[in-house]
Design a protein around this nucleic acid. Structure first.
Length: 647
RNA sequence: GCCUUUGUAGCUCAGGGGUAGAGCACUUCCUUGGUAAGGAAGAGGUCAGGGGUUCAAUUCCCCUCAAAGGCUCCA
């Protein structure tokens, strides 16, 4: 009896019954077999050495497949657990899954404490155990037997996990002396793990519940080759160098003050000017799309948020209301701009001919974030959104949505953000209690987003349960230069607020209708956006945005006046340039300008002064040779024009 | 908010129960130098803030604030 196996390329091969994915790999090539970590059988990832279930579709997974890497890292978590148990007998184990980069294992160390000084010993033990080439052996275990095993071992965490499982679906995996409750799958044996690094430790609550015991979470990563591990560690190092908190200080963009308060950034002149350029860019783009700027106060009466629903939903987790001294009137720092904008809409009767009404505001909002959550500019308590609300007729939703998508794409291009993915966030498929608004409105909104994304041909991924409580969203997740994902622009359809604020317009039928609202913020928040720009570009902003486009470097102070003259003329051509007036040698001035990431250095000495030229050196590139100041200005302005795409 | 760790000059960091150290940055002077660090001198700190123990605390203990990593959360 033969079984038929269909491979991803569509080819069909015949194997003996009981053949494994590894047998299939070997029949193709020995080299492939050596690299197979696990296999996807009819869509399910399984051990490579488990017999195939019969006729099936098979994909062999190697290190090049995300699922292959996950298998490897999952097995590595077991290896690390084995090492930890060998080093610290009697410790108990929580869970140990693979994650995006590597894996972790939550352990209860009892009275023991481990620190990063212990990492080398753990790594050495892992390598020693890996070299034994122990197979990962799967076994199906009756529930009673599983309970008995972990009762004897005294591991209450595993026992709790087993309690939640049905008899008959419990499997153990064993490698070497280490036995673990595990669904699998795993790599064939430990020898695939060649390069090992324990990365960090942190506290983590058992089952994510802050009322339960805190375990020690040990993070690690492994690779099949040392070279790949080295590259990963180099990437971590690069990320550390690009950290916006460090670069923000070095580039004089922003700072924080204990007295002002945590999570409340102070923008320095250079950072504020950079923000202004971003704002002006967005205003120009929005003007073309028919937006109108509005301005609203930083606070709003409590009733405004009762009407919007935010009070009920977030009142407990907001800054406390501020009150007037005598009458006790309550106001909230605004956590969003939309309620204010709704009131602008409601300030007079609207006709269907007025729609869409596009109200834009760079509105600063304040949200209480837990102190442990604050992080540089990416998680703050006060931030400015490039917010706008589009009030439109139901038949205009899709077109408006598409125009917003185009705007976001313009931003991505002008700021050289590269790869992105559009995440469509819909309701949780099961639990609908956390959402407000009618079923039919939700369905309409979700469909409008799906249609618009499809029509623009965006690379999309759908996430259930990620929607806002008032409506579905389309979030742009950009991938930065180091491959990290960030959520930036967001577009959200909202059928709910217009209802709560009883917004209306008079239709062509002379009847009252309810408008649909689209919330959108292409940058998201300026704070977060600038943080991502800093890290993505490693502080080397696009020329149009960067604080200083050029610096003039006199060879000696004999040429200082010439430099000051040229700086003035460049300013007339809209170039941001300064002069290094310090009494230093040219090598030093160049070094400091390179470190300050200034795109162009203009060197002026005897030769240039005579010829009326500047010698241009480009950051990171080197000497471009001499040219006239005007030619340089044209060069810069031309590049800026291309970057801005005609805005 | 919770857990762990940390807080010494503008920055990066050393030190340690007995009046505080380095490098870089800064100021002044010398040097006028051609594509990534010229030389010298000087100034700069209530050792995060508050309380306690001690003859004596920057150092040990407690509290508060802030930061780092993680957990939970994120309109």
């Amino acid at each position: 009896m033969k079984i038929e196996v269909t491979l991803p390329d569509g080819s069909v091969r015949q194997y003996e019954e009981g053949a494994t994915a590894m047998d299939v790999a070997r029949s193709i090539s020995e080299g492939l077999a050596r690299n197979v970590l696990s296999a996807k059988v009819n869509g399910e990832v399984r051990d490579a050495e488990r017999p195939l279930p019969g006729k099936c579709e098979l994909q062999l997974l190697t290190w090049n497949d995300p699922e292959g890497r996950s298998t490897m890292w999952h097995s590595s978590a077991h290896l690390m657990a084995e090492a930890l148990e060998a080093l610290y007998p009697g410790i108990k184990f929580g869970i140990g899954p693979p994650i995006e980069h590597g894996f972790y294992y939550d352990v209860d160390l009892g009275d023991r404490v481990i620190t990063d000084k212990d990492f080398p010993a753990i790594e050495a033990k892992m390598k020693e155990l890996a070299a034994k080439k122990s197979a990962y052996v799967r076994s199906e275990v009756p529930k009673a037997e599983a309970i008995e095993y972990f009762s004897e071992k005294g591991d209450e965490y595993k026992l709790e996990l087993i309690e939640g499982l049905q008899d008959g679906e419990i499997t153990f995996y064993q490698q070497g002396d280490f036995v673990d409750l595990c669904r699998g799958p795993h790599i064939p044996d430990t020898s695939y793990i060649k390069a090992v690094k324990v990365l960090s430790i942190a506290g983590a609550y058992w089952r994510g519940d802050e009322n339960r015991k805190q375990l020690t979470r040990v993070y690690g990563i492994t690779y099949p080759k040392q070279k790949e591990l080295d590259a990963f560690l180099a990437m971590i190092e690069e990320a550390r160098k690009r950290d916006h908190r460090k670069l923000g200080r070095e580039l004089d963009l922003f700072t924080f003050s204990e007295k002002v308060g945590a999570g409340l950034p102070l923008w320095l002149p250079k950072g504020a000017a950079l923000r202004e350029r971003l704002i002006n860019f967005m205003k120009a783009a929005q003007e073309k799309d028919g937006y109108e700027q509005v301005v609203t106060p930083h606070i709003g009466g409590r009733q405004l948020y009762v009407t919007s629903g935010h009070w009920e939903k977030y009142g407990k987790d907001s800054f406390r209301p501020i009150t007037t001294p005598h009458d006790g009137e309550e106001f909230l720092l605004k956590p969003m701009n939309c309620p204010h904008h709704c009131e602008i809409y409601a300030s007079r009767p609207r006709s269907y001919k007025d729609l869409p009404l596009r109200l834009a505001e760079f509105g600063t909002v304040y949200r209480y974030e837990q102190s442990g959550e604050l992080h540089g500019l990416t998680r703050v308590r006060g931030f400015t959104q490039d917010d706008a609300h589009l009030f439109c007729r139901p038949d205009q939703v899709k077109d408006e949505f598409i125009k917003v998508i185009d705007l976001v794409l313009k931003v991505i291009k002008a700021l050289d953000l590269g790869d992105f993915e559009a995440q469509i966030s819909l309701r949780d498929k099961v639990d609908r209690s956390k959402y407000i608004g009618s079923e039919s409105n939700w369905e309409k909104a979700e469909q409008a987003i799906i249609d618009a994304a499809k029509e623009k041909g965006l690379p999309t991924v759908v996430e259930y349960g990620e929607a806002a409580f008032y409506g579905p969203k389309l979030d742009f997740m950009i991938k930065d230069a180091l491959g990290r994902k960030w959520q930036l622009g967001t577009i959200q359809v909202d059928y709910n607020l217009p209802e709560r604020f009883e917004l209306e317009y008079v239709g062509s039928d002379n009847l009252k209708h309810r408008p649909v609202m689209i919330h959108r913020a292409p940058f998201g928040s300026l704070e977060r956006f600038v943080a991502v720009l800093i890290e993505h570009h490693a502080g080397r902003f696009p020329l149009w945005l960067t604080p200083e486009q050029a610096i003039l470097l006199p060879i000696s102070d004999k040429y200082l006046d010439a430099c000051l003259d040229i700086a003035r003329s460049l300013k007339d051509s809209d170039i941001r340039a300064s002069v290094d007036e310090r009494n230093e040698k040219i090598g030093r001035k160049i070094r400091d300008a390179e470190l300050a990431r200034i795109p162009f250095m203009l060197i002026i000495g005897e030769k240039e002064a005579e010829q009326g030229t500047v010698s241009v050196r480009e950051h990171g590139q080197g000497d471009l040779g001499p040219m006239s100041p005007q030619a340089f200005a044209d060069l810069v302005n031309e590049r800026v024009k291309v970057q801005l795409g005609g805005l």
